[in-house]
């Protein structure tokens, strides 16, 4: 039997033939990065390779790193192994990494979704023998509504809050979710204020030539009388922080796939939960895997044991590998990694 093209090691997903790692969680000499979220793109590697679109945010977050970039579809051959990056549809610049060696093709998909959010280049199915997938929402109870419906309810909620003289406070990942929400907001209702962690990323993304609606960074000097009627966009870690005390009277919303369930929705003690996710739901997860035509699937994070059992029953050979990826935990402020990044960006005070 041939050895696996990609192996799961204590440091990350390793390609021995090329001596590179994909999204490693411990420092390595050479890291191929699918996207800029903190659990996939960590500090301390000697060299990084990411798409030209994902690179600016990664460089902004990790500081002075040695970074090479690659375009979607471009092939880079390392020690005879062909690597190419393909759109994953998760966030701006996010990629699946295709690895080909001696006729065998593997795809490490990182995080992905199928719905076109207008920011990330839409997911492209890549035919492969082995597909490495997340299963963050790998249960049939997760079934996303079209984003237009979610944005309509967010905007209706904002409009109602404005009518009641309240500030609208909504949270989402500072990278990805925040910009997606931003583009779905109806700016005729009021102004959009941002937490420093969100605004820093907005800045990086605008500098790449991506257009986002106008936002106002909240600073110490911002007059708090200005907030009622308007909307504040902040990372989940800002919830229940001292920083957000000054926004009263306020209505709080959380945008995350977890908000599908009553339990997590009520645990957040938020006023509203909007099920909006940058990960695939059940039907799209199965659709994506079918499109890859993979005969073998490795499930890395999420409901991995349940989902791999399901795939095996359907005749797709599936197994689980433990990784340190966190899926969408940061959206409910339960991630260890993303919070550090937001905390570093500070609450502007």
């Amino acid at each position: 039997m041939k050895p696996d093209l990609l192996k799961f090691t204590p440091k990350g997903i390793y390609c021995q033939a090329a001596d590179v790692y994909i999204d490693p969680w411990k420092p390595v000499p050479r890291a191929l990065i699918t996207h800029g979220h903190a659990d996939h793109s960590r500090w301390g590697n000697k060299a990084y390779l990411a798409t030209d679109i994902a690179a600016p945010v990664i460089k902004y977050r990790l500081g002075n790193i040695k970074m090479e970039t690659i375009k979607f579809g471009e092939v880079r051959t390392i020690n005879g192994v062909k690597f190419s990056f393909h759109p994953a549809g998760h966030i701006l610049g996010s990629a699946q990494i295709r690895v080909e060696h001696k006729g065998e093709i593997w795809v490490a998909s990182g995080d992905y979704k199928l719905e076109d959010d207008g920011l990330a280049k839409p997911f492209e199915p890549i035919r492969c023998h082995t597909f490495i997938t997340e299963s963050t929402f790998g249960l049939p109870v997760y079934d996303w509504k079209p984003q237009e419906e979610i944005f309509a309810s967010i905007n209706a909620w904002w409009r109602q809050n404005a009518a009641d003289g309240k500030t609208t406070f909504i949270t989402g990942y500072s990278l990805g979710k925040a910009q997606r929400i931003l583009r779905g907001l109806d700016t005729s209702i009021g102004n959009i204020y941002t937490h420093g962690a969100v605004e820093n990323i907005n800045q990086v993304i605008r500098n790449q030539g991506v257009s986002l609606p106008g936002t106002i960074r909240i600073t110490k000097e911002t007059d708090k009388k200005l907030f009622p009627g308007n909307l504040i966009l902040a990372p989940p870690s800002a919830l229940n922080s001292a920083w957000m005390k000054k926004f009263k009277p306020v209505s709080i919303g959380v945008a995350s796939g977890w908000m599908t369930l009553r339990g997590p929705r009520r645990r957040k003690a938020a006023d509203r939960g909007f099920p909006l996710s940058d990960h695939v739901d059940w039907k799209d997860l199965n659709k994506a895997i079918a499109m890859t035509e993979a005969t073998r699937v490795i499930v890395t994070h999420g409901y991995s044991s349940i989902f791999s059992k399901y795939l095996n029953e359907k005749g797709i050979q599936a197994s689980i590998e433990n990784t340190e990826y966190e899926g969408e935990l940061a959206e409910v402020n339960e991630s260890a990694e993303e919070n550090k990044v937001d905390a570093a960006a500070g609450g502007s005070e």
């Binding site: 249960l139 109870v141 009553r262 339990g263 349940i306 059992k309």
Partner: peptide, 14 residues
């Protein structure tokens, strides 16, 4: 399959 429904139920709790 029924087992998948049951596993989902265990996660949802309701």
């Amino acid at each position: 399959p029924l087992w998948l429904f049951e596993d989902s139920y265990r996660v949802v709790g309701d």
